[in-house]
């Protein structure tokens, strides 16, 4: 059902945990739908120097979160903004069609954490001007 990469990131998720003095925290999804992702960012001089996540969800939700943290760690805010759900899914060697929303949730988690950072530090991030963390990815996807 899942690729080796997904199973690897599920088995040994990278960057699990919290950052106590995080500069940005984003939480997306909801328990009713069975997945919640929470992402913590440490940002110095516009660079994501550390990132951690916590996820409630299925195997692909955990693997997508893990992969998303890998893709943005050490990257600039601008580079992180370019990480799409497609990029997360591709980096995992693909996700089953019904699980694609997990990668979208991961993209949203990154953006929600960056949005939180921008708000707290009163900075503007290109692409987040009208950001509105999607409450329910499922409705969004399947409506």
């Amino acid at each position: 059902m899942y690729s080796e990469k997904v199973m690897d990131h599920f088995r040994n998720p990278r960057n699990v945990g919290e950052i106590e003095d995080a500069d940005g925290i984003g939480e997306v999804g909801n328990a009713r739908c069975g997945d919640i992702m929470k992402m913590y960012l440490k940002i110095e001089d516009g660079v994501i120097v550390d990132v951690k996540f916590k996820t409630f969800g299925c195997g692909s939700a955990i693997a997508s979160s893990s992969m998303a943290t890998e893709l943005i760690k050490g990257k600039t805010i601008e580079e992180a903004m370019e990480v799409t759900n497609k990029a997360v899914a591709e980096a995992l060697d693909g996700l089953p069609p019904i699980k694609m929303h997990c990668s979208l949730l991961a993209e949203q988690a990154i953006k929600a954490a960056l949005y939180d950072y921008a708000k707290k530090n009163n900075v503007k991030i290109k692409g987040l001007e009208n950001f509105n963390p999607v409450e329910d990815i499922h409705d969004h996807e399947h409506a």
Binding site: Y2, M7, F10, R11, C33, G34, D35, F56, G57, C58, G59, A61, I62, K99
Partner: peptide, 23 residues
Amino acid sequence: IEGESILLSLDMEGIAASSGSAC
């Protein structure tokens, strides 16, 4: 926690079970 991730983890230990989770 979510059922599918429990099942995958059980499978990694060589245990077959099922779940009523959406996933």
